[in-house]
């Protein structure tokens, strides 16, 4: 039986480029090109290394807008074999509960797997919740903050989980892990891989494609239980903004810190 890893990747805006409108509290997603969530590169790398060690295959799964295809092509260039994009306006507006439910439903449809790998968190949602929630929907164990995969067998893994202190944990498969940046460094795809990925097929599934696996009332905005009703963009910080230059700047700083009672 071959080892099948499913890796969850999200398509996120490049956070260095994305613009925020201080007045309206709007995020202008069109201001920044999308890319694969940086933390998910580590998840892809772990999955691909497992394949290189054990054989088998890796499937990347992403829920997002049609443009998210580019992130899946990136994953293919880095060694993923099969890519599935969940895209449908009915999926939109999902919080972590609805997102994880949708991803779990798609995993059920994909069928047999040994392991699901997630990134530690996303740079936009930034919750780190989707992984453990997917595990719960699937009824499988999970280990979060995996910083090292020590031993791999076809029915179990031994990993190090970084919870502040580090713990050695054995987990029976199928299971889900979320990985930190320490787990491995992501490889750079070669030009050949990138060209190959450009020609590869991405399977696109809408909500109907998941019928039999999904309850439509639990997806998207309707299936969400948290509601963002206001966004504030901190425009200026309440900082003193004292700029010092010249030869006496250090003594002025020391004086100021003494006044603040800090030294």
């Amino acid at each position: 039986m071959s080892f099948h890893t499913i890796v969850l990747v999200k398509h996120v805006p490049d956070i260095e480029k994305v613009r925020f409108d201080v007045e309206t509290g709007r995020i202008d997603r069109s201001s920044a090109p999308g890319e694969i969530n940086p933390f998910d590169l580590n998840a892809v790398e772990v999955a691909v290394r497992l394949k290189e060690k054990l054989g088998g295959m890796v499937t990347a799964l992403c829920m997002g807008p049609p443009q998210a295809e580019s992130s899946l092509r990136d994953a293919i260039a880095r060694g993923v074999d099969r890519a599935v994009l969940l895209t449908d306006s009915r999926f939109a507006g999902a919080d972590t509960l609805a997102t994880s439910y949708t991803l779990a439903s798609a995993i059920r449809k994909i069928g047999r797997f040994n392991l699901v790998v997630c990134g530690e968190k996303t740079v936009d949602g930034d919750t780190g919740q989707v992984g453990p929630e997917v595990a719960e929907h699937l009824g499988i164990p999970h280990v979060a903050y995996v910083c090292e995969v020590r031993e791999v067998y076809d029915n179990r893994l031994v990993v190090v989980s970084d919870m502040g202190d580090k713990f050695l944990v054995e987990v029976m498969l199928p299971a889900l892990i979320t990985v930190t940046r320490d787990v491995c460094s992501p490889r750079l795809p070669t030009l050949r891989d990138i060209l190959r990925a450009r020609r590869s097929r991405i399977e696109v599934w809408d909500a109907d494609a998941l019928s039999g696996f999904i309850d439509i009332s639990r997806i998207g905005l309707k299936g969400s239980r948290t509601n963002v009703f206001r966004i504030v963009i901190p425009s200026e910080y309440h900082r003193r903004g004292v700029i010092l230059r010249g030869s006496d700047s250090v003594s002025k700083l020391v004086e100021a810190l003494r006044m603040e009672g800090l030294i």
Binding site: L97, Y101, T127, G128, P132, E133, H137, H142, Y145, R225
Partner: peptide, 19 residues
């Protein structure tokens, strides 16, 4: 904490709660 962020989502998903 790392523990809270690993545990709370499991509980939330189990009871169908937002988190």
């Amino acid at each position: 904490t790392p523990l809270g962020r690993s545990l709370a989502p499991r509980v939330a998903a189990a009871i169908g709660a937002g988190l």
